[in-house]
Design a protein around this nucleic acid. Sequence first.
DNA 1: AGAGCAAGTTAGCGAAGCTAACATTCCTTC
DNA 2: GAAGGAATGTTAGCTTCGCTAACTTGCTCT
Lengths: 210, 210
Amino acid sequence: MTASGQSEGAAARQKAKYHHGDLREALIAAAYGLVSEAGAESFSLADACRRAGVSTAAPYRHFKDREELLAEVTARGFDALTADTKRAVEAQGEGSLPAVIAMGKAYVAFAAGQPGLFRLMFGQPRLMGAFPQVSETGGGCFGYVIEQVGKYCRANGVERDANEVAVKLWTFVHGASSLLIDGKYEKVTPGLEVEELIASATPLLLGHKG
Amino acid sequence: MTASGQSEGAAARQKAKYHHGDLREALIAAAYGLVSEAGAESFSLADACRRAGVSTAAPYRHFKDREELLAEVTARGFDALTADTKRAVEAQGEGSLPAVIAMGKAYVAFAAGQPGLFRLMFGQPRLMGAFPQVSETGGGCFGYVIEQVGKYCRANGVERDANEVAVKLWTFVHGASSLLIDGKYEKVTPGLEVEELIASATPLLLGHKG
DNA sequence: AGAGCAAGTTAGCGAAGCTAACATTCCTTC
DNA sequence: GAAGGAATGTTAGCTTCGCTAACTTGCTCT
């Protein structure tokens, strides 16, 4: 029936078995890759099945429907974004201005690197509302941003409400990410360097002198 | 060449007829409504056909495919956004700070009022690249924003490069719109008033003192 | 009036999401 | 260690959708 590619040497030990082993994770990985590459619009469950080497009915043993799989991908995306952001902050030292700027740049870099995934993570309010893992991981991501801005404010005597400042920064960085990956900047300001945009806007939004 | 250049004779006869009269416009209107109501994700050409009272093959006399119809909807969306923005500016008087703030509020209000349409207009870079009417109307919209910020800067002695300032404001306002309609603010800052956010961030980005 | 074209129609293909019914393997329990 | 149920695959098939082909209708223009 299934032509098992047993000529793979060591990997051949992974015999072509009826049961996949961990199809759930394999499907999430396949979907994550497909969404990152081509976006959620054109993503099809059938594609993910082909990539995982199973029939198109198999996913329904692990996910209620297409949306539930995408919700899991979304949650993983938020985890990845949070991890990127943390790495950027820690490389600069918590509570410093460079850390805040690096955080913004990491956010933009994530969006630019995987625009399809980024659009899935935002742009799908239904997922947020319906799946707890999405709202949890998403909330964790924004929560981290707010926490870091709070640290900066306290450490540097910024008198504004830290929460308010954080929301402003997040808003700006998110806008930059969206406009960048949607190609809107290109039309209007062809030579724009987004990293520089972040670096120059951050102090303004922190309330420093222009 | 616009198709509406013909005389009113044919369209005036509203009898139950084989030929629709102006199916192209009817389909655009139906699609505009459906996208505004439910988003482009769940939009189907078949739905638009039902709403227009016509078979599912009929659209192909007027549009190459589903995307071409959505591109037209996108262009209309940009026209509407530009119109809203202009109205807001003119109500406050060009070149004033209230005008700049009103412009931002109008942008956010447009997004909040028709989130599905807003997401279609942004979030679909393919449409921008492939259809001239999209990149024209889109460019016109952003161009207007930049022009208005330029007027403010010149009128009020803001020394920064007006283009740079405009991009910052646009970025912020766009980010606020996106996060708002995607429900992200709700999770993190439940009591947030977006209008106030715009009003307080605008002076900062214009380089005024915090 | 009749030719020709514009703009509708029905029919049907292939792909997708999803469900139902069947098949195989895993795992517990005697 | 075999029996059998639970888990997890499969195939078959339904419906919807995007799109095309081939046909039909009726408007327009000499």
